[in-house]
Design a protein around this nucleic acid. Structure first.
Lengths: 193, 193, 193, 193
DNA sequence: AATGAATGAGGGTTCATTCAT
DNA sequence: GATGAATGAACCCTCATTCAT
């Protein structure tokens, strides 16, 4: 009937959306059954698309990185791009607690973690270099520090409700701007970033 | 085998030691069976002492805080106490990944989390105030920032082996010293802290 | 092995049959594992069909009541229907000791017990009224007495073997016919009922 | 200090009283731990006195039979003794549901059950014979019927509260008096029996 | 004789995954 | 390709019983 290729992509998106919601509500270890149910699909359809929980988590992570890369595109060439990106990342991560939990539990050397690190750095480092050049950032900031910064952005996710988590996300981002030797506007970065 | 009537405190310590090892090796969700086995005890003995997994985790957390408090005692009155404490905490937390994982999965408002926050702050804040007075730290550092810093110290725990995790712990501590406006020795804090 | 997609009703019947046998052999508290094993099914299949032991027992009870109702149909309009029904019920109950044990342990006001009482009465009372009209039964027999009679029919189930339990069932039925003011043939009701 | 023999007897009584209460409240399968707790004794003291659950149940059963025998003594020589005994037994049994549950689950040929049957008959049959002689009872009542009657008296124990169970006990006794061909006062036996 | 901590077998239940339709 | 019933491994926990003090 409908285009099978488009169908497949739609179905994947349905599953990922459902997974996002379910993991947010029930934590990393939520039964996949709940995802199936939320997506309104049969059990095995999930397994056809994502052979196991890790595959599902990988897809969610990649979707997040895609969004991050997309956000970066719009900032290309701006000296303050790093600041904006940090706050942007903070917010996104703050809303994806279970994703962070899952990948933190894996070895750092897990291929997916390495891929994520690589992609995150390829997005961030150009902005770091530009900020250094503009004298807006400590000149000795290196890749390892930026990875730590990204990890640390995932530290604020214990806030009780979404609004609180967002607020903490921005406080975290500000704190880490200090860590990178960047200027932080008095009273913190305005929320309208 | 062992004296069943022997001191209860000893038995508790045996269990906690076993739990520490097992969780370090197998992650937060390690079967309690492994703990039992490692401790060389019967299954129900664990349950007598710690009615559920959370009780066990609480005890481990409290033991960690006790050690932290103890370390702080030796630093009382030193202007550089905060720096040392941060590095000390970083190392300890880096070796207690599963503990961090467990408590991060709970609500921040969980009584145990609130207790831990309170204890951590009561240990840290005096050192913060002294550092501020000595001009070694940004004067606007507040309790919420210190809690974020403590959380962020738990972010380096994905390192593959213990040595790597320790190294990252100290790099994290240095990064967070920057975040607090503290001086970091060129080349990072020497490992001999 | 067996067709996993085969008719659900069949599967239910398999489980119920197995449960019947197992409980008869091992008593009310027989491990459900034995039922699973006897039915030749996986453990969780039982749980899919009957979420807990009570659900299984409810289904068995309902099956018994269905059989009782069915037996009553054939007796409709006979003045001696009550006598036959009592003996019939006695035999069935005598072979379902664990079922009786289980439901006696529940509150009388448990919904399932109330349902069973209601169904039993709706089957029995028409025969009681007809017997009274025919002068074959004390006229003051009421619903509560009939429920007691039904309960009492479950009292003979301690007999050692099946044959003995059947014999006692009929002696019980005769005794309760006396209790209801009914005529009992000399030497007891002949077994060929 | 105190007389050790008296001590032992006292302790036994404490345990039996506690067991009575606990089983009444929590059913036949109540954890023995609760009995221990209620009696205010150590775990092993229970086991010293009653090696297992069956031993405890046996003792409770014997205590009940002792009380029954004692009640019978006072009725010796009265033509209406059987009626009184039936009602008396009904009440006692109605308050000992878990005891009945336990022994019904055993084989009828279990030594304790046989003992109980023998004792019950030795108490009851003299009253049956006297009632027959006085023309107050069907002459063909035999031992097996009397055992069934005793079992049936245990059938009313599903009433929700104690008062309701007592009421049903007396209705049961009346019903079984009918079963034995005895006269029942219009409106049932008065409660002041 | 009395204690209560330790034991370990076994119960119920959940859930990731497979497979016949 | 989609379905959902079946599977069985594994987990948590309870409790009757033992045993060193």
């Amino acid at each position: 009937m409908t285009n099978p290729r488009a169908d497949t992509a739609l179905r994947r998106r349905q599953i990922l959306d459902a997974a996002d919601e379910v993991f947010s509500e029930h934590g990393v270890n939520a039964p996949l059954e709940l995802v199936v149910e939320r997506a309104g699909l049969g059990r095995a359809t999930l397994y056809r698309n994502f052979p196991d929980r890790a595959a599902l988590m990988t897809a969610l992570l990649e979707r997040g990185l895609d969004a991050f890369a997309h956000a970066a595109l719009d900032l290309a060439g701006r000296d303050d791009g790093l600041a904006v990106l940090l706050h942007d990342a903070a917010e996104h991560i703050a809303l994806s607690a279970p994703l962070v939990d899952f990948w933190r539990a894996m070895e750092r050397s897990h291929p997916v973690n390495e891929m994520a690190d690589r992609r995150a750095l390829s997005i961030l480092m150009p902005f770091v270099r530009r900020a250094v050049d503009a004298g807006l950032c400590r000149p000795d900031v290196d890749e390892e520090q930026m990875l730590l910064v990204m990890d640390m952005l995932g530290s604020c996710l214990r806030g009780n409700d979404e609004a609180e988590r967002k607020r903490l996300a921005h406080r975290s981002a500000d704190l880490l701007m200090h860590a990178l030797g960047m200027q932080v506007p008095e009273g913190g970065t305005p929320p309208c970033v």
